Simulated assay, not measured.
Amino acid sequence: MGPSVPVGKAPDEGEEESRLLLRFATPRDPALIAKWITYQVINTEHQDWRRGAEAALRYRQRGEHLDVPYEHVEVEGAFPLGRWLSDQRRTFRAGIMTGERAAELEELGIVWDTADAGFETNLAAARAYYALHGTLAAPRGATILDLAVGQWLTNIRRPDGLGKDPERAERRAAALDPDWNPGTLGWTVDWQRHHTYLAQLLAEGAQPAAIVPGVTRHGEDIGRWLASQRRNWNRLNEEQQHRLAELGVKKAPQARKAAAKTAAASRPRAGGEAFQKGLQALQQYLAREGGMPGRAVVERLPDGMEHRTGIWISNQKARRDRLDTAQLAALANLGIDWAR
């Protein structure tokens, strides 16, 4: 009689041994029964793990990362890959995952800490925004690299926005611009953004007197903002005043009332139409050219009127002793030295 030939599927690893244990185990052999149960549990767990690793490999081969949504289910075999990877992360954090399994998952590209992975993605967008704008004081609707970086920065400025773990929060904050959260400094994101843009204009050679309403950067009216800061100087806190002073910005002088009506009547009023037309023409020229006009300059105003701006400045200088304080201040604000 020849050797026996196995029929059907060959038993999996450990399955034959478990069958033998069960065959020879009797109700009086509790140790053998326990060992058989252990083999069955270990074998099932091994098979489940292999299924998960194979599903992760298929997912990765499709060009995806392994930051898989928790609810994701692989079509092949309807395997709950998202939940399985979440279980592997918990096992890894608990320190009970074998080194072999951890190495296999890392080779596949598993994301152990999904929170940190998300932070790094947004941090890359924030750095791109900073490279373009020189600040992280982005408006809430700002986007870059197809990411809503403005909303993300708004979110992390909220309490515990960088995470409840103090060490992690401190590490994340260190990766950002020191002024990324202006609220902790006593001013708004809007103020921080305008201050940064003002500093950039000055660093590029613009004169403070030339930054008048209508001068913009990245769509922000820096001239109007600057005039507001000078006008409302006393409402700023000490650090804001200090930062502006470092840029050469000073508080706007207060106009004094005329000593007498007769004296006021003999002088051109600060609000006089001719004087205001001259200021408008000068502001327009400075915003465009960045320097004082020559005597022959003729500026065309928005209403179509041509203004002999160069001659107008010479005339104001010739009669400066007849200009009142408000008029002199208005001229000084535009950078005319003799009016100071």
Rank of each mutant, 00 (worst) to 15 (best):
310 G>K: 14
3 P>G: 06
292 M>R: 15
210 A>D: 14
305 M>A: 11
138 A>L: 02
270 A>S: 05
228 S>D: 12
245 A>W: 02
144 I>R: 02
120 E>P: 01
141 G>N: 04
4 S>Q: 12
279 L>M: 03
114 T>D: 10
206 A>Y: 12
329 A>H: 15
91 T>A: 08
194 H>Q: 04
253 P>Y: 04
15 E>T: 07
96 I>Y: 09
85 L>S: 05
221 D>N: 14
28 R>V: 11
52 G>V: 06
285 Y>K: 02
241 Q>F: 07
84 W>G: 02
322 R>T: 04
301 L>S: 04
277 K>Q: 08
81 L>P: 15
162 L>A: 07
234 N>P: 01
8 G>D: 09
182 P>F: 00
246 E>L: 07
49 W>S: 09
185 L>H: 04
139 P>A: 03
277 K>C: 11
256 R>M: 09
162 L>E: 03
92 F>Y: 06
57 L>N: 02
217 R>W: 13
297 V>P: 04
51 R>G: 09
41 V>A: 14
261 K>I: 00
136 L>F: 01
56 A>Q: 08
44 T>N: 13
76 E>Q: 15
232 N>Q: 12
272 G>N: 07
126 A>Y: 07
52 G>D: 08
269 R>T: 07
212 V>G: 09
173 A>S: 06
45 E>R: 13
119 F>C: 07
316 Q>L: 12
154 T>P: 01
221 D>K: 13
221 D>W: 04
24 F>E: 08
29 D>L: 03
20 L>M: 05
107 E>F: 15
317 K>M: 12
171 R>E: 13
182 P>Q: 00
333 N>S: 15
182 P>R: 00
329 A>V: 01
165 D>R: 04
219 G>M: 09
310 G>M: 12
62 R>M: 03
